[in-house]
Design a protein around this nucleic acid. Structure first.
Length: 557
RNA sequence: GCGCCUGUAGCUCAGCCGGACAGAGCAACGGCCUUCUAAGCCGUGGGUCGCGGGUUCGAAUCCUGCCGGGCGCGCCA
């Protein structure tokens, strides 16, 4: 639609200027917005500018619309122009436009829909970042899918994207992990009295596996040492082992990171004290009762927060501020953090931290991902992280597969709770939206295969007279294909993968309707060629969207 | 108590930076395979957009007050 919308904008702006000159209206005219009408019979594009400007012009919306339309001369892209409802101007695009859209899709191939909106600016997407204290659960999986797909979308729209995983490998949790593993190790070696299992330890059975691995590698030699002597080994071993599992799970989920950033490295590089100095220098940190405080009340936060405890140990917040300073120091124009929704209270603090470092807080986007409600046949599966009773991402992948899991995780808005029914996700039927879309792609491939086997050549692209598409099904499908660039732009601007899921579901629906209503092969030559190109274009776009979602586009099902 | 998110068809949800009679999928009911994949299509029924005020030519959308659901309010991570 790019061409047509731009052309229309010029036409309408010109007409508006003429009307403004005649009426003596001197104020600046805003950019004119076009939208796709919701209903059939309301044209291909419409604008509400007459309604929005009626006050400025001192005219009733419909009168102003009349005046504007009167100034619109004929244009090869325009079939007709109508005024409707309270003052909408509806544009019906011509067959020529339809032909051009098709040619554009086929010529651009996989690049169709991509853009340079990001201007090559550097954006970092940090996501998952689960503590290496246990396997990833389904909630992490949703964050992983959302982050990965947002990164894909940003890349497709002209951003230079880096994916990063922040490893919380410093602090108390690592200590507890090490002690938990150590206690299990001593249990396995028959010397449980050497180190009791910590009260707030990690109870999952995976800790036994790690302890067993220690034994396999190191034997029982730690029974001869004091627990304090061997603790560092257990900490490192357990964290490394869990991190390996996490990497493997994510790789199998189709998620790859450019950087695995260690929290510990912030301390090893001594970055935390200098970040604290920066805050003090800028007047946003102060000493009080032996602790260092951040003056977050200078911003939107409700109370000041401790950075360095009175015992000298930095809080998590100190790490996070330092980490974000480090991110921006690396030259990112924009940073996106993807967090679980339970951390929402932390957002104002983090934004304040960024601002206190002298950075525009708008350069940081924090996306909150709501919880996943795992169901089986409509029944909720109870989960509790505390008791170690939770379904892991690995479990879901093994049962449901990568495609359906990724698709389901981004079907809903990020900030909306997600019901994930394992049985539904596995079903091979129309109830399952993943298969519905993939099936459309497989059908398309089948038509093209069949054409080939009948010796019919499918031109790589071609100039088609759009007028050959007469049916509603063909026009709707083509129009939907033309929407793709706008939809990608929206998904990118709103950081909302679900926009693309809805779009591709609608597109698949349009294709299925077309497919059932019309034949392709065996029609008379010009119609067949045109439909073959239409089918091919639909296949291209479906494959593009599935590619952005990280879901395969099967050629057969 | 304060803060954030949320409440749209029987169910799951789009729409939410104001616009045309509120959309989709599922479920229910009725149709469609000698023709390129029926994992598909077509049709029918189904709504006080949580409730009350306000702003506006116009409100599911913005403001406000209630009600219900989720989450968060540590010198925890």
């Amino acid at each position: 639609m790019g061409n047509a919308a731009a052309t229309l904008r010029r036409i309408v702006e010109g007409a508006l200027r003429e009307v403004a000159a005649e009426k003596g209206v001197s104020s600046d005219l805003p950019e004119i917005a076009f939208e796709k009408p919701k209903r059939e019979g309301q044209g291909d594009l419409s604008t509400n500018c007459a309604m929005q400007l009626s006050r400025v012009f001192g005219e009733k919306p419909r009168d102003l619309a009349d005046a504007v339309v009167a100034k619109i001369s004929s244009d090869p892209y325009l079939e007709k122009v109508e005024i409707a409802g309270p003052g909408f101007i509806n544009f019906f695009l011509s067959a020529r436009w339809m032909g051009e859209v098709l040619a554009e899709i086929l010529e651009q191939g996989p690049r169709y829909g991509s853009s340079h909106i990001g201007g090559g600016k550097k954006v970092q997407v940090e996501f998952v970042s689960a503590n290496p204290t246990g396997p990833l659960h389904v909630g992490h999986g949703r964050g992983a899918a959302v982050g990965d797909i947002i990164a894909n979308i940003l890349g497709f729209t002209g951003w230079h994207v880096q994916r990063e995983y922040y490893i919380n490998d410093a602090g108390l949790q690592m200590d507890i992990l090490g002690r938990s593993t150590q206690a299990r190790y001593f249990e396995l070696t028959g010397t449980p009295e050497k180190a009791p299992f910590p009260e707030d330890g990690y109870k999952g059975t995976y800790i036994y596996d790690i302890a067993g691995a220690v034994r396999e590698q190191e034997g029982d030699r730690f029974t001869a040492l004091s627990p304090e002597e061997s603790l560092p080994f257990f900490k490192t071993f357990a964290a490394d082992s869990i991190l390996d599992t996490i990497r493997k799970d994510l790789a199998d989920f189709g998620v790859r990171f450019d950087v695995w950033f260690s929290e510990k490295s912030l301390y090893e590089r001594d970055l935390v004290p200098s970040a604290m100095e920066t805050l003090k220098d800028r007047g946003f940190a102060f000493e009080h009762e032996g602790a260092l405080w951040f003056k977050s009340t200078d911003f939107t936060d409700e109370k000041d927060r401790v950075l360095i405890r009175s015992n000298g140990v930095p809080t998590y917040f100190a790490s996070d501020i330092t980490y974000h300073k480090e991110k921006f120091d690396r030259g990112f124009d924009r940073v996106i953090d993807i967090w679980g929704a339970d951390h929402h209270g932390y957002v104002p603090r983090m934004k304040a931290g960024v601002e206190a470092l002298g950075r525009n807080p708008e350069d940081l986007d924090v996306l909150l991902i709501q919880f996943v409600n795992l169901l089986r046949n409509g029944q909720q599966i109870p989960m509790s992280t505390r008791s170690g009773q939770f379904v892991t991402l690995r479990d879901v992948l093994d049962e449901v597969g990568v495609d359906a899991t990724r698709f389901f995780f981004v079907m809903r808005r990020n900030d909306s709770h997600l019901d994930f029914d394992l049985e539904l996700a596995k079903q091979a039927s129309s109830d399952n939206p993943v298969y519905y879309v993939q099936y459309a792609h497989a059908r398309i491939c089948s038509v093209l295969r069949e054409a080939e086997s009948r010796g019919i050549s499918v031109p790589a692209s071609g100039n088609i007279d759009g007028g050959i598409f007469r049916s509603d099904e063909e026009k709707k499908l083509l129009s939907r294909l033309g929407d793709f660039p706008k939809e990608v732009e929206k998904a990118s601007g709103e950081l909302a993968p679900h926009v693309l899921v809805n779009y591709v579901s609608d597109l698949a629906g349009d294709f299925h309707s077309f497919y059932n209503a019309h034949r392709v092969l065996g029609e008379e030559e010009p119609v067949m060629k045109a439909r073959l190109l239409l089918v091919k274009a639909a296949g291209n776009v479906i494959a593009s969207v599935l590619g952005l979602l990280g879901v395969t586009a099967p050629e057969r099902m």
